[in-house]
C-alpha cells in the first residue's frame, strides 16, 4: 500500500515540478544588443602607466575626500587601478600588468535584471524618473526605489556594486560614467556623460565615447600593432557584451587581469529564460490554481458524502 502512495505522490510532485520549474529553451528571451548610441569606456592596459590620476579624478568629481590610494573598489571608490601579477608573463616579458576597474555598464546587466523595483536601470528606462536621456545604456541607481537588498552585489559577475555597510541610510555606490558632468552644449557622447577618468588620462589609456566608436578604435589599435595586443576586445561579446571594453598586452589573458571568463550569453538572459519560461506568460499559475481548487473541492465533497453515508464507522 505504502509503495502505491509514494508512486502517486511522486507522480503528482513530478507533474507540479515540471510545470513550475523545467526550463524551456524555446521560450528564451531575445538577445539584448547594444543601443546604437550607447556610451562606454575603452581601457588599454598596454598604454596605462598606473599613475592613478583617474582614481583621484574619479573621487574628486564624485565629491569623495581622498584618503590614500585605494586597492579595491568600495563604497568610496568607484574606480581603481590595480597592478596584477600575471601567471603567464606577457609576450614582451612583463610579469605584471595594470588594470582599471569600474562598472562595466553591461549591454544586458545582471544587476538590472535582479533589481526588484528597477532602482538599478539603464538610463532612460526608469518608471519613476521621467526625462532621463535615452539610449546611453548607462546603468544608473535610483535611491528612492532601492530597498538595499543587495541582490545586485550577488548577481554582478564583476562584483561592481558596493554597499555602505556602516551607514544607517546606506546607498549602493558604483560608477555612473560621470553623467552628472554631462555638458548639454556639446554634441555626441559628451552631451550625456563626461567621465573624469577619461578626461584626465595622459596616455589615452582610458577613452570615453560611443561604444561602437570605441570598438572600432580598439580593433584599429590591434591591427595597427598586432604584436603589441592580445587580438581580442574583452566586452565585445563577453557576458552578453559590455560598454566598458578592455585591451590587453599580447600574451596576457583577461582572466589574469581579473576579468571573469564568461560565455556570450548574458547571465541575465539565462536567468530570465529559466525563470520565466515555465510561467507561460502567467498561464501556468492560473491553470495550477484552478486545477488545485477543483481537486480539493471534489475531494472534500466526496469525503462529506462518505461520512454522510457511512457515519462514524467509515474509518
Amino acid at each position: 500500500m505504502a509503495l502505491t502512495i509514494s508512486r502517486r505522490a511522486l507522480f503528482g510532485v513530478a507533474v507540479a515540478a515540471t510545470a513550475a520549474a523545467l526550463p524551456s529553451r524555446a521560450e528564451a528571451r531575445p538577445r539584448v544588443v547594444a543601443e546604437p548610441d550607447a556610451v562606454g569606456l575603452l581601457y588599454d592596459s598596454t598604454r596605462c602607466i598606473g599613475c592613478g590620476g583617474c582614481v583621484a579624478a574619479c573621487k574628486e568629481s564624485n565629491g569623495v575626500p581622498w584618503d590614500g590610494e585605494p586597492t579595491e573598489l568600495d563604497c568610496t571608490t568607484r574606480n581603481v587601478v590595480k597592478t596584477r601579477n600575471l601567471r603567464q608573463p606577457s609576450a614582451a616579458g612583463a610579469s605584471t600588468a595594470f588594470v582599471k576597474r569600474q562598472c562595466m555598464h553591461c549591454v544586458d546587466p545582471s544587476c538590472v535584471s535582479a533589481c526588484m523595483l528597477g532602482a538599478l536601470h539603464k538610463q532612460g528606462n526608469s518608471k519613476r524618473v521621467p526625462g532621463e536621456p535615452k539610449g546611453t545604456g548607462i546603468v544608473v541607481w535610483d535611491p528612492d526605489l532601492c530597498l538595499g537588498c543587495r541582490y545586485c552585489e550577488i548577481a554582478c559577475a564583476f562584483s561592481i556594486p558596493k554597499f555602505e555597510w556602516l551607514a544607517a541610510n546606506p546607498r549602493i555606490v558604483k560608477c555612473e560614467l560621470c553623467r552628472h558632468r554631462a555638458d548639454p552644449t556639446h554634441d555626441g557622447p559628451l552631451s550625456v556623460a563626461n567621465p573624469a577618468c577619461a578626461e584626465v588620462c595622459p596616455a589615452e589609456a582610458v577613452v570615453f565615447g560611443r561604444r561602437a566608436d570605441l570598438l572600432a578604435e580598439a580593433w584599429r589599435r590591434i591591427s595597427a600593432e598586432p604584436g603589441r595586443y592580445e587580438p581580442r576586445v574583452y566586452g565585445e561579446s563577453d557576458g552578453g557584451g559590455t560598454q566598458s571594453l578592455y585591451l590587453a598586452a599580447a600574451g596576457v589573458s583577461f582572466q589574469d587581469l581579473g576579468l571573469p571568463d564568461m560565455p556570450s550569453e548574458s547571465p541575465a538572459s539565462l536567468s530570465e529564460s529559466v525563470s520565466h519560461a515555465p510561467y507561460l506568460h502567467g498561464l501556468t499559475p492560473i491553470a495550477l490554481y484552478a486545477g488545485a481548487a477543483a481537486i480539493i473541492r471534489r475531494n472534500r465533497r466526496r469525503a462529506e458524502d462518505e461520512s454522510a453515508h457511512h457515519g462514524e464507522d467509515s474509518k
Binding site: A114, A155, A157, D261, S271
Partner: peptide
C-alpha cells in the same frame, strides 16, 4: 533556487 542562476560565474 532560481535566485542563484544569474550569479552563475560566481
Amino acid at each position: 533556487g532560481g535566485l542563484m542562476i544569474v550569479a552563475g560565474p560566481k
